[in-house]
């Protein structure tokens, strides 16, 4: 969860935020959702908008390494934080998680995919060999309407296997 930053009374206050490793100082209202800051102010449209109420996970990003629904985080809550979006994850080429989604067909329309990849990445960073129940818990906030999750299960299992091979 995001810790509360002190609310600034100064409406002209700027948002200091690190996005994908780069410092940014943005002139946005404190109550603006992180989702909109990313999509509209920074042009990072890999983060998707769907329910805007924390139910679908299409907007998932990492805030200080933890998966967060960016539609529920307001700008002021991100003051001084480091945000990683799907674009940030992909900067050094495809990650193993992305490679597994590609190979196993863990996507169709792809609209849920950035959020799904972010959630899987956060899950595996936290625990490299989650049980099925852990996977369900970690991904139950990411809706996919197209795949029926079959390809997503396969991709996640594959990613876990890869991790094991690499570390084992």
């Amino acid at each position: 969860m995001i810790e509360r930053a002190p609310i600034s009374a100064d409406p002209s206050a700027k948002l200091n935020i690190n996005v994908n490793g780069r410092e940014a100082v943005l002139d946005v209202p404190p109550s603006k959702r992180l989702l909109h800051v990313l999509r509209e102010d920074l042009g990072l449209t890999g983060t998707k908008r769907s329910c805007e109420m924390g139910r679908c996970g299409a907007c998932m990003v990492l805030v200080d390494g933890k998966a967060v629904n960016s539609c529920l985080a307001m700008a002021y809550q991100c003051e001084g934080k480091s945000v990683t979006t799907i674009e940030g994850l992909s900067e050094g080429g495809l990650t193993p998680v992305q490679q597994c989604f590609l190979e196993e067909g863990g996507y169709q329309c792809g609209y849920c995919t950035p959020g799904m990849v972010v959630s899987v990445t956060a899950m595996l960073a936290n625990d490299p060999s989650p049980s099925d129940a852990d996977i369900e818990e970690a991904l139950s906030g990411n809706l996919c309407r197209c795949t029926g999750y079959g390809g997503i299960w396969r991709a996640v299992k594959k990613a876990i296997e890869l991790k094991k091979e690499q570390t084992g």
Binding site: G46, T47, E87, S90, L102, Y107, G110, T113
Partner: peptide, 8 residues
Amino acid sequence: GPGKVTGE
């Protein structure tokens, strides 16, 4: 696929 998994 690549454009979808990277958000590009």
